[in-house]
Design a protein around this nucleic acid. Structure first.
Lengths: 196, 196
DNA sequence: GTCTATAGGTGGATAGAC
DNA sequence: GTCTATCCACCTATAGAC
């Protein structure tokens, strides 16, 4: 249960963020949210219209947090390999999965435009950001000119999301670390001068 | 509802495979399984001890099917890039996700050794298989010698799993296709002689 | 083997008192 | 704003008849 000093609506959103991360949308019940937030039924339905409304608020916040975090890793400047590397190897907890990406596997999230929107926008932004960095690397001659920036950006975003799957399947973070190292190794090999 | 000529236990397993793929473990109820299989409660609990038992049988079958399918793509012979390429660009339905990988995001699957085992074994096998192909490519001089086979294999497996996430987030298969093309492009760039 | 009946618990939400 | 009471459908499983 959260600090009573925190606003009730805020505690409900925070609790929902956590439960969506841990259990997904279909696996998260209003009752569980209320218990974790230390709020009653009445409070929840006073502040939100229902589970989809509350989940949408939680997902928008998680998406914004993730984007800010990723932007912090990507905006470091330096070479394309350095920027992508900073993003790929940043500190993570692979066994928890991605708090946004995991929701893309949820049938009720994908079936609802409102619930899917934050997930869609997050990955559209991330792929675009990574593609831009690769395009810059190609433009400066750091990366081979035959590298397609959009395809490469999508592959880099996918490696992280897929790394979570491998780690959770194994019950061990090792496959995640291997996957991101492997992606970085491939990107280095695609440097115009691979000795760099 | 399935053909009555099919064995009842078999229909139950097949229906469970489909529902696990569509809705995951927490999102799949015995009632929904029974309805799809055209079987009653009594039949289900006669043939299986309960939902976890039936789900485990369905997951073992899905894992075996996926492995056989992947092996068919990977065993084509030829260069490492050709073998990996055949696996990466094989016909898929990205919006449906991976019938095995999706279960790695399910909290009750990862919490149970018996349910997680087929998922764990599938990806351990797949990563090992891809790593072996990369190692062969390095050994024959097709791929650059500084490529780590295990890391690269994990990255390739992750791209496919992550591609599903991107496609479902977008509501469009395009990001999946981009990701696998991007991965193949990077692997080609890591060829010892990139003109190949 | 398959059916119906039954069971306690939960899911998601509404109503109205305070 | 928050609480309790109430609602009906569904979840997962057991019991026992056929």
């Amino acid at each position: 249960m959260y600090d009573r000093a925190m606003d009730t609506a805020d505690r409900l959103v925070t609790s929902t963020q956590e439960l969506l991360w841990e259990r997904g949308y279909v696996g998260t019940s209003p009752k569980a949210i209320q218990e974790r937030a230390g709020a009653g039924q009445g409070s929840m339905y006073h502040h939100f219209r229902g589970k989809p409304d509350l989940a949408a608020a939680a997902m928008r916040r998680s998406a914004a947090e993730l984007r800010a975090q990723a932007e912090g890793q990507l905006a470091g400047g330096g070479t394309a390999v350095a920027s992508v590397g900073a993003y790929l190897v940043r500190e993570r907890e692979p066994l928890r999965g991605c708090r946004v990406g995991r929701l893309a596997m949820d049938p009720e999230v994908v079936a609802s435009d409102e619930l899917r929107a934050p997930v869609r926008d997050t990955f559209a932004w991330l792929c675009g950001r990574l593609s831009g960095i690769v395009a810059d690397g190609v433009a400066t001659g750091e990366l081979r000119p035959d590298l397609d920036p959009q395809d490469t950006g999508a592959a880099l975003a996918a490696v992280v999301q897929g790394g979570y799957v491998l780690a959770r399947a194994a019950g061990d973070r090792e496959p995640f670390d291997r996957a991101v190292r492997g992606a970085l190794g491939l990107l280095r090999a695609a440097a115009a001068d691979p000795s760099s």
